[in-house]
């Protein structure tokens, strides 16, 4: 898997999709490739995170702790990103991510990502745009849910 392929993977992730190719290359080149073997944890719920992982190959399980034990909430595969909130602000991990098979990832640390945004404000604007879209989507969903609740209660 070469740098060119990594750039392709990065481009397929909405957060980075609209960045200029040169910036994606820089992000890819300065990020570390990390391989997890089956069963290893990328991050653990409740711990403070400092990196996001772009999954290049393999699949991982996202699990959350519940009073009744662990609950698998989703699975992620190639071309997805996990833990991206951690590279934008300091919040504890909201879930545990565990490799389901041998997992090839690109580790994007907070420091490196932030230094990229300070050097190239257009990156920050792009990220902001994606986040705003997400917020709009989430708000819409919330409104939807509220409406449904009201309908049920009313």
């Amino acid at each position: 898997m070469s740098l060119e392929d990594e750039v392709e993977v990065l481009r397929s992730i909405p957060l980075f999709a609209n960045l200029a190719p040169a910036k994606l290359k820089l992000l890819g080149f300065t990020s570390e490739r990390v391989v997890f073997s089956r069963g290893q944890e990328l991050c653990r719920q409740g711990e403070v995170g400092d990196a996001a992982y772009v999954i290049i190959e393999g699949s991982a399980d996202i699990v959350v702790d519940t009073p009744g034990g662990e609950l698998s909430v989703a699975q992620v595969e190639r071309n997805s990103i996990v833990g991206e909130i951690a590279i934008l602000c300091d919040v504890p991990r909201t879930a545990t991510v565990r490799a389901l098979s041998e997992l090839q990832t690109l580790k994007i640390t907070k420091d490196r990502f932030l230094s990229l945004t300070t050097e190239f404000p257009e990156v920050a604007v792009e990220v902001m745009r994606v986040l705003a879209q997400r917020l709009a989507a989430t708000t819409a969903e919330l409104t939807d849910v509220r409406k449904q609740l009201q309908e049920r209660d009313g």
Binding site: L3, K25, L26, F29, T30, E119
Partner: peptide, 20 residues
């Protein structure tokens, strides 16, 4: 070629140079 292309726009004191 690759390195010059990728890093050309970066100011010389940028922390990303530590990766190089």
């Amino acid at each position: 070629t690759t390195v010059v292309e990728i890093f050309a726009d970066l100011s010389p004191d940028h922390p990303l140079f530590e990766q190089l």
